[in-house]
């Protein structure tokens, strides 16, 4: 879902850059008040793993492929969408500058979709679903939704840019990413969550009972 240069008019690209900077400012504030030193290596390992897995496209029908975003996994494990933002933004910057994956002018919009929308959908989706459908199904559904809704947002943005027609854009982006979301995001996120929980349950964020948040 990495948007290349040229798909978004520059004046619109600037708007997404500004939104990314504002959320970046609040993410730095979150880290300064809430990012525990013991979580820093975890953050770095998640970033490295997500970069690697994003290079592995999984085939889906219709001669198409797709890969995990990973923002939901980070937000759920660390316990904040701001952590998802910081990790995905790091990955997206390296992809755009070193690998030509996602345009440099489109970095703001790619951060908007994959670091902001995916992180917040993944985190709050998990938080709201967990009491209703239990922890592991909540991880799966929240991860699926984090990819699907980012793709829907992408289709709307590309239609605002005049690059895709709205209805067909929603149809194809929605269809492909609904499928990519099942294996590419939902299943891999669930496996990674269970693997981390199996070896280091202490690393997984737990909401304190009776406390804020």
């Amino acid at each position: 879902m990495h948007i290349p240069d040229g798909f978004i008019p520059l004046w619109q690209a600037v708007i997404y850059y500004i939104i990314a900077l504002i959320v970046g400012f609040y993410s730095i504030r979150w880290a300064r008040t809430s990012l525990d030193e013991r979580k820093v290596p975890l953050l770095a390992v998640l970033a490295a793993g997500i970069f690697a897995i994003q290079a592995m496209n999984i085939p889906i029908p219709w001669g198409t492929s797709g890969h995990m975003v990973g923002a939901a996994l980070v937000a759920i494990i660390i316990g904040s969408p701001f952590a998802g933002f910081l990790v995905l933004t790091t990955v997206l910057i390296i992809q755009a500058l070193f690998f030509g994956d996602g345009g440099v002018t489109a970095l703001g919009i790619n951060i908007f979709n994959m670091a902001i929308i995916s992180s917040w959908v993944g985190f709050y989706g998990f938080k709201w679903l967990k009491p209703v459908i239990n922890e592991v199904p909540a991880v799966f559904v929240a991860a699926w939704a984090s990819l699907f809704l980012a793709a829907i947002a992408c289709a709307i943005e590309l239609s605002l840019a005049g690059t895709f027609p709205l209805t067909l854009g929603l149809y194809f982006m929605g269809l492909y990413h609904a499928v990519i979301g099942v294996v590419g995001e939902g299943l891999i996120t669930t496996i990674a969550f269970l693997a981390i929980k199996g070896v280091r349950p202490d690393l997984i964020y737990r909401e304190e009972v009776g406390s804020h948040g």
Binding site: M1, H2, I3, A55, M56, N57, I58, P59, I60, W62, G63, T64, S65, G66, H67, A151, C154, A155, F164, G169, F172, M173, Y176, H177, I180
Partner: peptide, 11 residues
């Protein structure tokens, strides 16, 4: 990895 276009490229 699949070398097929990704969801966005396919669309």
């Amino acid at each position: 990895a699949s070398s097929d276009p990704d969801g966005l490229e396919s669309a």
